[in-house]
């Protein structure tokens, strides 16, 4: 009867494997990837998932089978052995080889995402944004359209954006606006100057497969490039609304709502420190929004009564 304990082990392991099989179909899986390097991250994830999944099933199968096969039998004596040198060598060398392989293949992606040398240089073609985290929101600063235009005429003027705020810069809390990079065209990279005013925070954008802590006293550069867009001017509200699916032309599509989360514990309201990522179709659409946002942020006349929804 003892051998039936193996059924318990087997059932739990099967359920575990089953959950991983079912989860993608239930929508409990990696969120939609929209960044240029996210594909590499996902590929690596699936590679490791494949390897570990294989060894998981292998070892658990041996264990469950072993429990079934070798459970107590008074007529039998256990085999007397202290080990097997060849086996030890084998199961040291093979995993070591696989692990070294995993270690080596990931280096390039890691370099690509985080190394300073890979950060886009401030210049005419780099989108620059300053993200300042504080308890418990993201205060985001954009260059004014005028300042961006000046970078086109003299790229050197773009150098000081992260360090020197201008009076006509545009401030929009919790909304991270960038424009899309179209494959095959000139790269449209985003350079974020990440800061914090009080404690550690972490900028996490699941759809970009990106996360970076913000450290007090430091400005940390973060870059990304988005390959899809999710916002467009909503004709009814007159605002740029996210959740826009370019294929269907509908707003409020959950697959196209890309949230910005705080992932490093930052105090009481850490759980609700969220923002949103708005990706515009192209630079022109972004500039149009930026002009609108600038007018709002530098409003000098009473607000027009908001239209009822």
């Amino acid at each position: 009867m003892q051998k039936y304990w193996s059924v318990l082990f087997g059932a739990v392991i099967t359920a575990a494997v089953g959950l991983f099989v079912v989860a993608p179909f239930m929508g409990w899986w990696l969120p939609r990837n929209v960044s240029s390097f996210g594909g590499d991250v996902d590929l690596l994830f699936y590679l490791i998932l494949g390897i570990t999944g294989f060894f998981f099933v292998l070892t658990e199968a041996i264990l469950v089978y072993g429990i079934w096969k070798f459970s107590s039998d008074p007529t039998r004596k256990a085999t007397y052995t202290h080990g097997n040198h060849k086996l030890e060598v084998l199961w040291t060398i093979v995993p070591a080889g696989i692990l070294v392989m995993i270690g080596i293949v990931q280096v390039r992606t890691w370099e690509n995402i985080k190394y300073q040398s890979r950060m886009p240089r401030p210049g005419a073609n780099t989108q620059q944004i300053e993200v300042v985290a504080r308890q418990w929101e993201w205060r985001i600063r954009y260059p004014s359209p005028k300042r961006m235009a000046s970078w086109r005429s003299d790229p050197r003027l773009a150098q000081d954006f992260g360090a020197v705020p201008h009076q006509d810069d545009v401030h929009v809390p919790n909304e991270l606006h960038v424009w899309r990079h179209q494959k095959g065209e000139e790269p449209q990279k985003v350079l974020v100057h990440l800061k914090t005013r009080d404690v550690l925070h972490s900028m996490k954008l699941v759809n970009l497969r990106l996360m970076q802590d913000a450290v007090p006293g430091k400005t940390i550069p973060v870059w990304f490039m988005v390959e899809e867009y999710n916002t467009s001017l909503h004709p009814e509200t007159g605002r740029w609304v996210d959740g826009f699916d370019p294929k269907t032309g509908h707003w409020n599509q959950k697959d196209y709502v890309w949230e910005l989360a705080c992932a490093e514990f930052c105090g009481t309201r850490h759980t609700a420190m969220k923002g949103k990522l708005f990706v515009h179709k192209n630079r022109d659409d972004f500039l149009e929004w930026l002009k609108w946002a600038e007018a709002e942020d530098h409003r000098r006349t009473p607000a027009v009564p908001s239209t009822e929804p």
């Binding site: 308890q135 418990w136 929101e137 809390p173 919790n174 909304e175 420190m273 969220k274």
Partner: peptide, 26 residues
């Protein structure tokens, strides 16, 4: 109402009142 809405949308910088601008208008 616009004053209260502005406070909700922009938050109150320098205090613990965050921006709720990512919520919908209604």
């Amino acid at each position: 109402r616009e004053d209260l809405l502005r406070t909700l949308r922009q938050g109150i910088d320098g205090t613990s009142m965050p921006s709720f601008g990512t919520m919908t208008e209604d």
